[in-house]
Design a protein around this nucleic acid. Structure first.
Lengths: 132, 132
DNA sequence: ATCGCACACGTTATAGCATAACGCAATTGA
DNA sequence: TCAATTGCGTTATGCTATAACGTGTGCGAT
């Protein structure tokens, strides 16, 4: 599931996300791309759908926003579960992975015979700078 | 932060959630309470806000829904991080806690001096019955 | 070649989720 | 009694996401 060449719209959306210094909502992305001909939400959502599939963009469920993967070039899907720490003050997002956490969650799902498809881990709070 | 006596609206909303066999959206709750005089979303959201605060209801971020806490009577806030496994087929939700996971996440936040306020862990997939 | 298929795209409309802002009533405590 | 707090009801609005339709393009199979 490596990323094929991006289409024009996908590239535009990805570019906006990569240049942003924090997560963006679909509608914020739309606004930033109006000059490039974007007019409707679906143009953004369709691009995001693919970018998520390719693993180059993550969706932050708890804030309905999207962020470029912190591992440019790599396929993030291979890192196990992705976790995020989201600062409620400055909006900065830190992405990390913890195999022990993955392990524990996998143990649980195995014990319950639950077939995990997608796991969300999001920590909301204040980053070091904002907590001061 | 134990739960004080619930107001009428809070009790109605909580009752609907407890009797449901899965998570409900705010608007679904609203529909179920129209016979009891509910007419606007805010009546539901305001009740939910308090119920979340009291720890007797959880919000499932990844599906914009709400579910009664699986530990009736207890204060769920004292169990550490709450995790959920959500079946995408039948909608059933399993709530669980894993102190080792909590520990690992706390270690990470400590190391980054990130002040965690609220942590979301949601596993989406298929439950044993539906995966068959 | 041309047919059929898959896929990206554009547009309009609509569905679904959540909160702002106003005002009223009841409670409580100084 | 007065002020502060809390819950409540209503209207309006904003934000998030998808349905349904049609167009165009590339590409492999016949």
């Amino acid at each position: 599931m490596s990323a094929p060449a991006l289409t024009k719209n996908q590239a535009l959306v990805f570019d906006v996300l990569e240049k942003a210094d924090g997560p963006l909502s679909a509608y914020t992305i739309l606004d930033k791309l109006r000059d490039h001909g974007f007019r409707a939400p679906l143009q953004v959502y369709r691009a995001l759908e693919k970018l998520l599939e390719y693993g180059v963009v993550h969706r932050l469920e708890s804030i309905n926003s999207f962020v470029a993967c912190a591992h440019p070039g790599e396929n993030c899907h291979s890192h196990g579960i992705v976790a995020f720490a989201i600062c409620e003050s400055c909006g900065q997002v830190m992405e990390f992975h913890d195999h022990e956490v993955d392990h524990r969650l996998m143990d649980w799902t195995k014990s319950k015979k639950f077939k995990a498809e997608k796991t969300t881990i999001e920590i909301r709070g204040l980053c070091e700078a904002c907590a001061a």
